[in-house]
Write a protein that binds this DNA or RNA. Structure first.
Lengths: 134, 134
DNA sequence: CAAACAATTAAATAGCTGTTTAATTGTTTT
DNA sequence: AAAACAATTAAACAGCTATTTAATTGTTTG
């Protein structure tokens, strides 16, 4: 009698994809079925990456609360205009902020979309949790 | 008669800190009073920075749903063990994941704290908004 | 139209980051 | 104790990123 695979009687065709067997097939299936698509991950990661810089996070927080021109943002951040401009361009390219020109000045503000709203709320909530000053 | 400053009659002592005058004093005050402290910003930015890498974001998502050993994480990610280990070390140093050794294997899982929970929820929600597959 | 101001862009540099390959440590099993 | 397996660490490299300084573009005002 030849060797039979242990799972030869299994009717459902799904195979386990992970080398070790620490989970049931159902658990493993859940992971692979609910795993976000690559482009979804990329979008979320991109937003988080840009807010992962303390400078940009503070600018973003500011722009979630008020619209500001570059000169005022630079003063608020205590940074040079070119440096601020660089970060604003990144935030805009990521879709986190929008711009509006009025005369000589360009006003930046948080982009009015649900992702930005969620990120803003999350930042405030996490800041609350890890608050350094009381 | 010498030049008098326009605001010489002001009784409240707060001065405007931004060079341009696009806001009322109250609006400006709100910003400076509610602005998160530097270390708060640093903590939030650090967490977001580490989740800003697509590889780590996917690992984090996985570990929010199940505990896994390094071999299985590497298989799930289709990456080498050293590369995965590198990212796991970063996630652990940031306090986003915890470890537990059992025999030869080290199991990683999302750290059980409110910041991690909030980040997980946010990731799922933003993924829902920007979902690529339907 | 020239001067002044706001903002952006460009070039250069220094520092950081992710992956690979190879070597090493820790644990179990025979 | 030696072999096998899991995980980490180290060294090296390529690619990216943030800031500075200088130059440029766009807009308004005298």
């Amino acid at each position: 009698m030849t060797m039979e695979k242990k799972n030869s009687i299994k009717l459902t065709s799904n195979e386990m994809k992970l080398p070790h067997r620490h989970h049931t097939e159902e658990e493993e299936q859940f992971i692979f079925e609910n795993m976000p698509a690559e482009c979804t991950i990329a979008t979320v990661a991109e937003a988080m990456k840009q807010l992962g810089d303390p400078t940009r996070l503070r600018i973003f927080w500011l722009l979630c609360h008020t619209e500001e021109c570059v000169v005022d943002i630079a003063a608020f951040m205590n940074m040079s205009s070119p440096a601020v401009s660089h970060h604003l361009r990144i935030l805009k390219a990521t879709g986190l902020v929008t711009t509006r020109r009025e005369g000589k000045e360009v006003y930046y503000a948080a982009a009015p979309n649900p992702m930005v709203q969620k990120l803003h709320i999350t930042i405030e909530e996490i800041a609350e949790i890890n608050c350094c000053d009381h």
